[in-house]
Amino acid sequence: MTSLPDQPAQRRLGLVIDLDTCVGCHACATSCKEWNMGGVAAPLTDLDPYGAKPDGVWFNRVHGFEAGEGGAGRTVHFPRSCLHCENAACVTVCPTGASYKRAEDGIVLVNEDLCIGCKLCSWACPYGAREFDEAEGVMKKCTLCVDRIYNETLAEADRKPACVMACPTGARHFGDLADEGSDVSRLVAARGGFDLMPELDYRPTNKYLPPRMNASPAAVAPTASGEAIRPESKFLQWVDRLFSR
């Protein structure tokens, strides 16, 4: 349904992505592609796959940014996928009802049988989370792996989004952000998780954790007295020490 659910969902399932640990390996991107190319949004068509302009549908793409100048800055790897916004204009602009936000868990999905491929939802998404499948003529997007997380044919431990399962550094977390006691909510609270483009008021469910700007640990410089120590004197100091083989 195009209109957003009347009541805020009881559960708000989403991802928390830790920009402090993401090393930019693209595992989340290719696992996502791999899972979803055969999932409810299948296929994720690739066009010209071996030619000059390879182009395919992906639900998750990893960017690299530099923030700050010179050595004082940081390089940050930045995975980008649907944020399953509370205030999802991608849903409300949809003329057909193909785009909808699930009342029970807040997941934003596309019903491809209804989609006319007008692309308006992709214009309405500030985050570039919607991808048009040219060959299929319909809009597609991250499903939050809805066909994994509730999949009773999978073991309990596997009922997580493919990108979260894959991530080798453990930079991706999945859970209920409406539940203040959930691991993800606690992580967001502890680490100052933030929204992307809060000024647009889409109220994303997914949160990003900022890179930690660790100050140097307070160290005792071993050579605080520096050159005052005469190297030759060291030997005299050492000669009396007894150690055991």
Binding site: M37, P43, L44, T45, D46, D48, P49, Y50, G51, A135
Partner: peptide, 8 residues
């Protein structure tokens, strides 16, 4: 070469 991959 395939011009399109949609075998999923």
């Amino acid at each position: 070469r395939a011009g399109r991959i949609d075998f999923g």
